[in-house]
Amino acid sequence: MSPTQHPAEATLVDYAAGTCDAGRTLVIAAHVAACPACRQAVRLAEAVGGVLLGDLEPTPMGAGALDAVLARLDDPLRPDPRPPAQRPDWIAVPPPVLEAARRRKRWAAPGVWVAPITRGPGRRSSYLLRVGAGMAMPRHTHQGVETILVLKGAYEDRGVLYGPGDLAENDETVDHRPQVTREGECVCLVNAEAPLTPLDWVGRLFQPFVGI
């Protein structure tokens, strides 16, 4: 089934333009991989990028750049070191991410684990977050944009059900308490521009341990 919750068009344009940071690109790429509609939107944006590339003021290349490249044309190709992806019932995520989950996940609270993927620049981070069946997150808001994609399972947030492949963008205007559905655990791929801001005592109590 195709995802029903999508990134904003402006987000897809940023993604196509290459102006998103690495962590955010990771999350959006996983959604786009699962979403035919967003692939179409990205493709249009890429075509626009191509047209506008032709309009850019050229910056002269260094002296001898063409000769240097011509000399390298016959270099043998290095084999691609990336192993083939293995992802049974998960949304497409690159193997290094799953590897990070395997090696770095740590239980942060009963039923909750966090596996850091990237840290920085600044307060940015991306991580996998697992929350057990039926559990609710402590009430919280955000600073900057949090981009969150469901990889497995589902959660409910302010009347909207987010299932595998669905993506949400939450910022400081959001005050919420997402709840995982009863059917099973929910695993999300998250990129946040800053740690979340707890709005109740439970969250304030747990945040130092959870580290997100």
């Binding site: 333009a17 991989a33 075509a47 990028g49 191509g50 590339l53 992806a85």
Partner: peptide, 23 residues
Amino acid sequence: TWIFTIARNLHIDALRRTRPPPA
């Protein structure tokens, strides 16, 4: 478009070593 996406992907590769392979 094709050359634009090649350039963009190289830029993203440069940002990190583990670019997710697009679907």
